[in-house]
Design a protein around this nucleic acid. Structure first.
Length: 281
DNA sequence: ATGGCAGAAGCATTCTGA
């Protein structure tokens, strides 16, 4: 099963690029971030024509996430519905559409667009850390239920200095601070692993290049888009790839897709027996 | 410290992103 994540920076502007990519790669699940559109205006039909169902959770101009899936997802939840985070009133997270989750093939897919955070010490930075702490509590709840987790998205955090083209320049700053890395690690704890780092131990692999300063042409990128899976799934993980080719498209997103291949042949997926669970073309 | 580029809203310019 191919599971992909892609911050498309507006689904309406990037629509043909996304459908082209799906037609070439045939992912089973594609999680999108920064769709920048309310649910009623999400371009559903192009994906249905390709045999996919669409679950969107968006807003005007900013943020927005979606799950595009060959198999119709179950138990779709939008936002921190199960969050028991007590340090903050979670109402402050409801205006920004940054999380959607669903059950597919017996796996809890959690698609997130983590706040950028602007700069250390800003109000937006505090919001980012609180949001990550809330995500940690959301995952605690899933763990209690014994869910197999696949947590994907744009995390706006480079997990280590290997994930930055010039760590000396950026270390300690936004997306590279120990505060953010600690908050991310508190989400992952010992239960989730970074799919990409199972296969690649070296630096030089990026999922985002700034639009400015010729960053792509100079290959000055960051790895901030991630696919984290439950430890229990690690034996099923066949590969993890970053498809940097899309960054060379005409009018590209500044992010590129990241994708894993999970071999689920020997996983007990009881609802496969249910014909209803397959999306009708 | 600032700006560089891109998208949305909306029609000039501001806000946001990372």
């Amino acid at each position: 099963m191919l599971i992909a994540t892609w911050n498309v920076n507006s689904i309406r502007t990037r629509l043909s690029q996304v459908t082209d990519w799906i037609s070439q790669v045939h992912p089973d699940i594609l999680c999108l971030q920064e769709t920048k559109v309310v649910d009623d205006s999400f371009p559903v039909e192009p994906f249905e024509k390709l045999g996919y169902s669409v679950e969107a959770y968006g807003q005007k101009s900013y943020n927005g996430v979606a799950i595009i899936s060959k198999i119709k997802p179950k138990n779709i939840k939008k936002g921190f519905s199960d969050c028991t985070y007590s340090d903050q009133n979670i109402e402050i997270f409801k205006d920004q559409k940054r999380l959607i989750s669903a059950d597919i093939n017996g796996i809890k897919i959690i698609n997130v667009y983590v706040p950028n955070g602007s700069s250390l010490g800003s109000n937006k930075f505090e919001y980012k850390i609180n949001w990550l702490n809330c995500l940690a509590s959301f995952l605690d709840e899933q763990e209690k239920k014994g869910e197999l987790i696949c947590l994907v998205g744009d995390f706006n955090v480079a997990p280590s200095n290997l994930d930055i083209h010039d760590p000396n320049k950026y270390e300690g700053g936004i997306m590279a601070s120990s505060i953010e890395r600690n908050a991310l690690n508190n989400v992952l704890k010992a239960r989730l692993i970074d799919s990409f780092r199972i296969f690649e131990k070296n630096t030089g692999h990026w999922s985002w290049w700034d639009y400015r300063n010729n960053a792509y042409e100079l290959n000055k990128g960051w790895r901030i888009d991630h696919i984290y899976i439950s430890k229990e799934l690690s034996s099923k993980l066949k590969n993890c790839v970053i498809d940097s080719s899309t960054r060379a498209n005409f009018r590209p997103s500044d992010h590129v897709p990241v994708m894993i291949n999970l071999n689920l042949d020997d996983i007990n997926v009881d609802f496969f027996e249910d014909e209803d669970d397959f999306f009708e073309i």
